[in-house]
Nucleic acid binder design. Structure first.
Length: 278
DNA sequence: CTTACGGCCTGTACGC
DNA sequence: TGCGTACAGGCCGTAA
């Protein structure tokens, strides 16, 4: 489920409850996670304070005071529920796999029906060189990421631009939704070969990627408090998408009057406007 | 080297 | 109502 903006929103929602506080107890409620938890996971985490939470790509990095990093990835269906201890009469869900009891009575539940998410415990210094992190491309919201940087990453790539945007070695954080949205905003066909996106086209696309991600983070931030109140769920908010999941609806901001089309690329749905995107 | 595809899991929506 | 099918916002390993 979560792409960069959702992960960022979860990170921002967790920070006030977690930064500077200790994880008192960690409970694994389900043993057969697709990616098993590290050995002695609970013992290595319990009693440690979280100094801060950072983000790299779609990974959260919970920095612990003892020089270790708890890496959290939400996969497709992962979510973190933030509950107050006193209001915590909520029964556990079958997919509440890992439970963190935090100092001050807060509880975080890692719920992940499809179990595509994962948790790792690494020494801080090991993170960049880890096999999951080493291949990752640039952060799209960094100042250094611009049209030139994007074009350089796309050079020589024979895949459709849509598929290239999903490749975390090209750039990180963009998933199926924001790939569709950014291409629509930039007026670029998802079928165009990646290496032909250069010059001004690459400038437009890089700007569009930043724009859709930033707007979505802003939406998430503004709805954070609403989502924490009722059920503690973090990071799920309504953003209005221009094309994603809008098959058959008229293309917004375009006078073509044509309906949004849906095609399949590399097994994933792509939504776009034939008239606007070339 | 690059690109294409199957597989991992479960839940939900929809057509018959 | 029940059943089958398609699909879901991610990513890895392997094959070609």
């Amino acid at each position: 489920m979560p792409e960069l903006p959702e992960v960022e929103t979860v990170r921002l929602g967790l920070m006030p409850r977690l930064a500077g506080r200790r994880i008192l107890r960690l409970t694994q409620r389900r043993k057969d996670l697709r990616v098993p938890l590290p050995a002695r996971f609970a013992a290595r985490v319990e009693g440690r304070a979280v100094t801060t939470i950072e983000r790299r790509a779609k990974y959260m990095l919970w920095r612990l005071e003892d020089g270790h990093t708890l890496v959290v990835h939400l996969g497709m269906s992962g979510r973190l529920l933030l509950l107050n201890g006193e209001a915590n009469t909520q029964p556990f869900d079958a997919h509440d796999h890992v439970v963190f009891d935090i100092e001050d009575g807060w509880q975080i539940r890692f719920n992940d029906a499809r179990r595509f998410g994962l948790m790792l415990l690494l020494r801080d210094a090991e993170v960049p060189a880890h096999k999951l992190f080493r291949p990752l491309g640039p952060e799209p919201l960094d100042d250094a990421f611009d049209g030139k940087a994007l074009a350089a990453r796309l050079k020589g790539k024979r895949t459709p631009i849509k598929c290239a945007l999903l490749d975390q070695r090209v750039l990180v954080g963009v998933g199926n939704i924001y790939a569709c949205e950014a291409l629509h905003l930039a007026g670029i066909s998802p079928r165009r070969l990646a290496h032909t996106v250069s010059g001004q086209r690459a400038d437009r696309l890089a700007a569009a990627i930043k724009d859709v991600l930033r707007r979505s983070i802003a939406d998430g931030g503004s709805s954070l408090r609403d989502h924490m109140q009722p059920d503690g769920e973090l990071g799920y908010f309504q953003t209005r998408f221009a094309v994603y999941d809008k098959e058959g609806q008229p293309c917004p901001g375009c006078t073509c009057g044509k309906a949004i089309r849906r095609i399949t690329q590399a097994g994933r749905s792509t939504f776009f406007c034939l008239a606007r995107q070339r």
